[in-house]
């Protein structure tokens, strides 16, 4: 995956209006998109993404339909697309079939929130075979030896968990971010480091770039914005977040 940095990755939950939201996010300045494939019991997610996932499932969303939505997004925007889901969903679909169909729908990378490097052997082979980058996460609680393993195994980018806890907007980011960036960079010098969890404001994005990260992922806060104001509000919100990227480039 060619990820333009500094990166601003926006999360969209799979739904019928996801393509429209994806276009709005990219118009606002998103450089890549995550597409959430909903799971009934998302342990890594806080209330906002849980609610969005439940709404999506209640509306009849399935992994197969979510990959069709991904293809619709791919036809409309020209940024890397990254499905994000849970191990149970991929396992039920079959790792090989899932990666094949996701690649065909335009996915360039894949995040599976509850499958750490130790459990990802089969999934990694399946992803590699079809040219999908399997992204791993490192957290402020990760020990140095785990950071090395996860960072070295991660393809496309390394996902830095910016807050200890589940997903969801927060006021402040974990104070250990700069240290986490440093350790991860040492383990994977050529892989972009993108931070997510808890990020909701331009100053968060600026602080992450300041700490040495190559970009930010915004999920729950964007879903909240969509819930309140639809695609127009999302575009305006992303535009505001993107100012933090331009400040850095200048």
């Amino acid at each position: 995956m060619k990820l333009r940095t500094p990166a601003l990755i926006l999360y969209v939950m799979a739904s019928d209006d996801a393509p429209e939201l994806a276009e709005a996010a990219v118009r606002g300045g998103a450089t890549a998109l995550e597409l959430g494939i909903p799971y009934s019991d998302p342990l890594a997610d806080g209330p906002t993404i849980q609610r969005a996932a439940q709404r999506s499932l209640d509306a009849g969303m399935t992994p197969r339909r979510a990959l069709e939505v991904l293809a619709e997004i791919d036809a409309r925007v020209d940024v890397p697309l990254i499905p994000m889901t849970y191990g149970a969903v991929v396992e039920a679909y079959g790792a090989e079939a899932f990666c094949r169909d996701a690649a065909a729908a335009g996915a360039e990378a894949l995040i599976v929130a509850d499958v750490p490097p130790e459990e990802s052997g089969e999934l990694r082979s399946a992803a590699t075979a079809v040219g999908i980058d399997l992204v791993h996460l490192v957290a402020p609680t990760s020990r140095p030896e785990r950071i090395s393993v996860a960072a070295a195994a991660s393809r496309g980018f390394v996902y830095l968990v910016a807050a200890v806890g589940t997903t969801g907007a927060r006021d402040t980011l974990d104070e250990r971010m700069a240290g986490l960036v440093e350790q991860t960079r040492a383990a994977a010098p050529d892989t972009p480091l993108i931070a997510g969890f808890g990020i909701s404001r331009p100053e968060h994005v600026a602080a992450l770039l300041e700490a040495g990260a190559d970009g930010a992922i915004v999920a729950s806060a964007a879903l909240d914005v969509v819930e309140r104001g639809g695609p127009e509000a999302l575009e305006a919100y992303v535009r505001e977040l993107a100012t933090a990227l331009r400040t850095r480039v200048a």
Binding site: L43, A44, G87, A113, D114, V115, P116, E118, E119, H136, L137, V138, A139, P140, T141, S142, R143, R146, A150, V161, V164, G165
Partner: peptide
């Protein structure tokens, strides 16, 4: 096995 978010992996170790 261990199918959990990275944040708790260290605690399991």
């Amino acid at each position: 096995g261990r199918f959990v978010p990275e944040t708790v992996m260290a605690a399991l170790d």
